[in-house]
Amino acid sequence: MKKILIIDTKAGNLFSLKAAIERLGFSATILAAPDDNVFDGIVIPGQGRFGTVMKNLNANQWPDYLQQAKTKNIPMLGICVGMQIFFEGSDEDPEAVGLGWFSGKAQKLNFPKKPMVGWAKLDSNIWPQSIVYFVNSYAVKQSEHSIATTFYGEQFCAAVKQNSFVGVQFHPEKSSEAGAQIIAQALSGNTARSNGDLI
């Protein structure tokens, strides 16, 4: 059984996320600070403000842990703000510094209504036709690592991928069957292009 770590960023309940992971047949452990256990996959949840999440990650030495996990190619899934923290920053809390693995930042986009709430179809080779649930006021407009976009007032980056890390702006744990498949793929490290090539 795959052992998945959910990082507790102290920014909201994790019941749905934990249950979504367990429904896939994985075990899920919630930790507020790193320990010595070895995990097969790591999830950074999608609740809370950018600044608060970064503050809690920094306070518990998560950035070093994540850097090491990246070196070891452990599958990682960042959800919503948990994806945004891998960029340089966010207009939500301009003083907070992100992990900076990806260039760019989350911005307040030209959404017709804020927050964006609801289901939207992804424009993606990897997840063609997938319809997933978004809840966000901020998003990354574009990234060289983008693997999915969607359109709400303007086009923005709905998912990024680099090596074993997948970041999604939407909430797969609230996206029914489509979301479950995306979580399973990301945590198995087998997110592939539709032609079967691993990226």
């Binding site: 909201g12 309940n13 749905s16 249950a19 429904r23 809840v135 609230k174 996206s175 479950a180």
Partner: peptide, 25 residues
């Protein structure tokens, strides 16, 4: 929350911030 994988809202009788917090938590 553990069983559903679509979003849900609860309402009715939430009288103070502590009630709101309790249901979100």
């Amino acid at each position: 929350a553990k069983n559903l994988s679509i979003p849900f809202t609860v309402g009715g009788g939430l009288k103070k911030l502590d009630d709101v917090k309790a249901f979100l938590d």
